[in-house]
Design a protein around this nucleic acid. Structure first.
Lengths: 195, 195, 195, 195
DNA sequence: CATGAATGAGCCTTCATTCAT
DNA sequence: AATGAATGAAGGCTCATTCAT
């Protein structure tokens, strides 16, 4: 059972709000519902009706990206090379986090505004758990690392890539940092080919 | 050339302000100059006179810790075991960052409010640079890592340790994450003894 | 001339709205038409169609109780003991006012939203007038009291009972206050038997 | 130890705010701090600095009147005619309540914003208690009436006088209602001379 | 130097009412 | 008739910063 579909005009406003929010996120402006209403040329009430809090809106903005990651995660589970599967998954995660400013706060938040967000975060977490487990079982990954460390470490790498770097170099930097981290994650040292 | 020494009462006020700010930082409260004035039982104007911005105050709070790190860095330079010297330095840095909430924002900020902060950050940066260079020359550290990466990576590790962890476990977690990172930083894998 | 009968579904909606409003009144929540629509699972528009203002709805909620009072008033008129008839009527009025939160605002309001309310208030007023007149004529009641004072005094007693009292003790308190007031209303002091 | 005296300009603003509030109370407008700031031609912050809540301001507006009542209460205690003393006190109370719209809400509020208000309310309450006790001991007053009933009953009388009455007749009406109530309060019926 | 009163922009949120669907 | 999305005025409160005393 999904939510009742929105009326056409309501749907258009919903889109506008999300689009405006997306732009603000991209330019690094914090989401303020009044501000968004003004930019979307809508009444504040309309924005509040659709998104009771700024967090709900931010999560909505982040959702497509989280879904893409989840989808990719499913594919990674099909890869029978444990090391590569994990590395791939983490690389995508990092790239997303560094590219889309809505992800970090949503990922790091201990509590979610939307159930959908919780679902997606859990899905991602279990994919990560599974991939890490397989890699560990294959002896590819150090034993003291649990899936609880995965999210923090990914957030950390993303954060690192955002400190002192320009948008242009950000992805490249994030990849380098991930590689740096990973080559410690791997017990074996067949680096270039194990990725 | 140092700043003219403060009058005795001015000095006392300065101390009080910094002490109050220190407490606020420790309890995770954002620094608000009005708030600080109230707690220090001083006029806002007095606080503003001593610290034109919240950043300046925060940097002042962070200074002793930065100085301690710089001092330790000097000592590390005396260690003739390049790998251990670097690891030691980084470990201290991380621990400080995780222990003292004033450090992260100051370290990550692209621009400083106080010249002294800039000095200290540069000093730390050169120590890091030197230690990394020596380790790299000794072949202990991967070649693609430059000293520009050091600060971001340390910030990232500290950030990671702060995501989803309690104050109690924070230091331990930070150490684990640093180890995880390092064991990729090192080219050779005679781990325990290379540290 | 009565209002045209409502269509069956419209009648059902009307009932639902009034029932929800009744509940809200009982729990002391102010009537807000949006809120009521949500709780009744109806559109706001529907609520507005039936009740153009919150006052109209409140009066509708109060109506049955006002009607019961009016009915009781008619009966009191049949009582040939003037003092007892008046006391009975007032006691019922007070108890109703203290028990049903919809009454006080409706009673005290200088103007009504619904004609029916005006009718009922006038009916009650004339009953009061008549009962008071008879009691006065019987020399049971002080002469300077007119029927215009009845409503205010009853409102006052109800108000007094609501200040600093719990729902549990409210009725009892109201009765005590009425007795206190009455024993001054009576010129003669053969109290218990004059009631 | 009293509060430090305000600076001259601050005192002027304080006065202005209270004066504006007084006017609003008199014209029956609810106190809104923003509104008051506008009318007093002051910044909102200034109003908030002096009065953190609308209740605090209202109580400040009510204070002089409460003080006058308390003073009068002290004098009433000196009257050795218990019935007259009580009647006098209650009459003043009622007149004040009906004349000054700030009193009712402050009197009826279960909790106070200012300590001074609590003090004054308690003082008034104990005077009432004492006067009632004396009158009861003198056998002038019905025995089932406690001082806890005094405040509610006075509020009730004041409320009654405000229902359906013009400002012009209000005081006179209030006096009549009080008399009506009192002549029941008195056990003996030497009315005119006992007052 | 110190004080702290004043400022007012700025953000948040609610709710009565209208009107297109 | 019914719906419920949209509106936006209105009110609440905070806080960085200035400046008269």
């Amino acid at each position: 059972m999904t939510t009742a579909p929105l009326r056409k005009d309501a749907a258009r406003n919903w889109e506008r709000i999300v689009a405006v929010a997306r732009d603000l996120v991209d330019e690094g402006t914090p989401l303020q519902l009044n501000d968004i209403a003004r930019r979307a040329e809508l009444g504040v009430g309309t924005v509040y009706r659709h998104f009771p809090t700024a967090e709900a809106l931010l999560e909505t903005v982040a959702t497509p990206c989280l879904e893409a990651l989840a989808t990719h995660g499913e594919q990674a589970l099909a890869d029978d090379h444990p090391g590569r599967a994990l590395a791939d998954f983490l690389a995508r995660t990092i790239e997303a986090q560094v590219t889309d400013a809505s992800l970090s706060p949503v990922t790091a938040a201990p509590t979610d505004a939307l159930p959908r967000t919780t679902e997606l975060k859990q899905a991602l977490w279990s994919v990560g758990d599974e991939l890490l487990g397989r890699a560990r079982d294959a002896g590819v990954v150090r034993a003291d690392l649990t899936s609880d460390d995965l999210v923090p470490l990914m957030c950390g790498i993303a954060y690192a890539a955002n400190v002192h770097s320009t948008p242009a170099t950000r992805i490249e930097t994030a990849r380098r940092y991930l590689t740096t981290l990973l080559e410690g994650v791997y017990v074996q040292h067949t680096r270039s080919d194990s990725l």
